[in-house]
Each structure stands twice: as structure tokens, then as C-alpha cells.
């Protein structure tokens, strides 16, 4: 314990004997003891009861749907005949849609790895923890970065002709630019969007792209992965 620290532990809290986090000291802020937590309820029965009701509702809903809707079963697996179109489970159809545009190494390995790594590191970056609005500091400089990033994305996606990624990117990019605070006075419509941090924008972009890809892969792709409308009958 030779190291000199800027703070001292409170009375009777021997950290070696009884480690327990009582204060957080983050950069640029003073130590903040958790303040008023408001009303508290006993877990038994309040939490237990709610969880039990949630469980019952869930099981009732599941049983009802399972009675009405049969799980699909196709022909016996045949390694000699690929069904057309061959589709992965719905939650991988976004990935399959990406595989249509990008080489397998990019769409199958690099992008998913980046997504997982990106998710894991979210809580380890101060910019995400503080969650300051994107345009709060140096808006003009950030606008340039945003426009450059969006332009690069649009170019890359256009080169690969990844239209189903490009369209949601346009929508989110458009909203992002729209949220840029106008120099003269406040805009009402931009208030919610204008106060969003960078992490919010990236995650929202990711969700909208993933949702679009999954929906397109599920409903709009027919034989040979060509575009079909869900209401037009195909295959047969």
C-alpha cells in the first residue's frame, strides 16, 4: 500500500477483507456515492409474483401458437439436390443477404466478427458511457467527419451494389444530417435526434440495416436469390 491515492476508503471498509464497490471515481467527475434510490420493494413477493405471472403468460401464449402452427419439415436431406432458394434460419437471412453482395470472407467472417467485437467493447469506451450528444462539441468539425464517413460508406456499398444495405444507410444518414442543429434558432423536430450520442446512431443504424436485410432475405428473395414480391406466387 505504498502508492499514494487521491481518495480514501470510508470508515470501516477494509477493501482487502470485504471488497465491495461503494463509490465510483471516473475522470473529470468527483466521487459520487449512490444517492437516493427511491422506494424499494421486497423481492419476495413482489418480484417472484411478477416473474411467475410473466412465465404463465408466456407458456399460455407459446402453447396456443404451438397448437395452431406446425413446425415445418421438408423432404429427407438430399446432398445431391439443392432446394431453390436454399435459405438459412430467419436470424441468419440477414447474413445470407450480405453473402449475396460480398465475398464470404467479408460477409461471413469479417463483418460478424466486427459486430461481436463492437458489441463487447461498447461499455469500455468513455464516449459511450458519458453519452454526450453527437453535436454537443465542435459540431462543424464533426459534420465534416460524418459526411466523409457517410460518403465512404455509400461509395463502398455502391461498388458492391449492396442496395439493401445502402437504402437503410441513406435513411439513417439522412436523419443524422437532419439532426444537425441549424445555426439560427432551435428546430423542434430535431430535438430528440439532436440530443442522441454517437453510440445511439451507430446502434440504430446497425439495427435498421440488420432488420432490413432480415426482412428482405425472408420475404423478398426467391429462386436463385432473385428479388420477388411476397404476394406474387413463385416456385410452385
Amino acid at each position: 500500500m505504498s502508492e499514494k491515492t487521491d481518495y480514501e476508503a470510508g470508515l470501516g471498509s477494509n477493501a482487502l477483507k470485504n471488497p465491495q464497490r461503494i463509490v465510483f471515481i471516473t475522470k473529470k467527475t468527483s466521487a459520487k456515492v449512490k444517492g437516493d434510490v427511491g422506494k424499494q420493494l421486497m423481492s419476495y413477493p413482489h418480484v417472484i409474483l411478477r416473474e411467475a405471472i410473466a412465465f404463465q403468460l408466456l407458456v399460455i401464449a407459446m402453447v396456443l401458437v404451438a397448437l395452431l402452427w406446425d413446425a415445418p419439415l421438408e423432404q429427407l436431406a438430399n446432398p445431391l439436390l439443392t432446394p431453390n432458394p436454399a435459405k438459412a434460419p430467419w436470424y441468419f437471412l440477414g447474413l445470407q443477404e450480405l453473402l449475396h453482395y460480398f465475398p464470404p470472407l467479408v460477409a461471413g467472417i469479417i463483418i460478424p466478427t466486427l459486430v461481436v467485437v463492437g458489441l463487447i467493447v461498447i461499455p469500455y469506451f468513455n464516449v459511450n458511457i458519458q453519452g454526450k450528444p453527437l453535436w454537443a462539441t465542435n459540431p462543424a468539425g464533426r459534420l465534416r467527419v460524418v459526411i466523409a464517413t457517410l460518403a465512404a460508406l455509400v461509395i463502398v456499398l455502391s461498388v458492391f451494389r449492396a442496395w439493401t444495405v445502402l437504402v437503410p444507410t441513406f435513411v439513417i444518414g439522412g436523419l443524422l444530417l437532419f439532426s444537425y442543429p441549424a445555426p439560427s434558432g432551435d428546430r423542434n423536430s430535431g430535438q430528440f435526434l439532436g440530443s442522441r450520442p454517437i453510440s445511439w446512431w451507430v446502434m440504430t443504424w446497425f439495427i435498421v440495416v440488420a432488420l432490413t436485410l432480415t426482412l428482405v432475405g425472408t420475404f423478398f428473395r426467391g429462386p436463385g436469390w432473385s428479388w420477388v414480391w411476397p404476394w406474387s406466387s413463385h416456385g410452385a
Partner: peptide, 20 residues
Amino acid sequence: LGCITQWKPEANQIQCPCHG
């Protein structure tokens, strides 16, 4: 990705059903 392609005589093409 290892799907089995099909010969389409009408188009004079070999086509893959999985990713087009």
C-alpha cells in the same frame, strides 16, 4: 458456399440457387 448449381438449358447458364 457449396450449393449445387443447376444447368438451365433455356438460358444456356449454370445457376446457383443459394445466392444467385
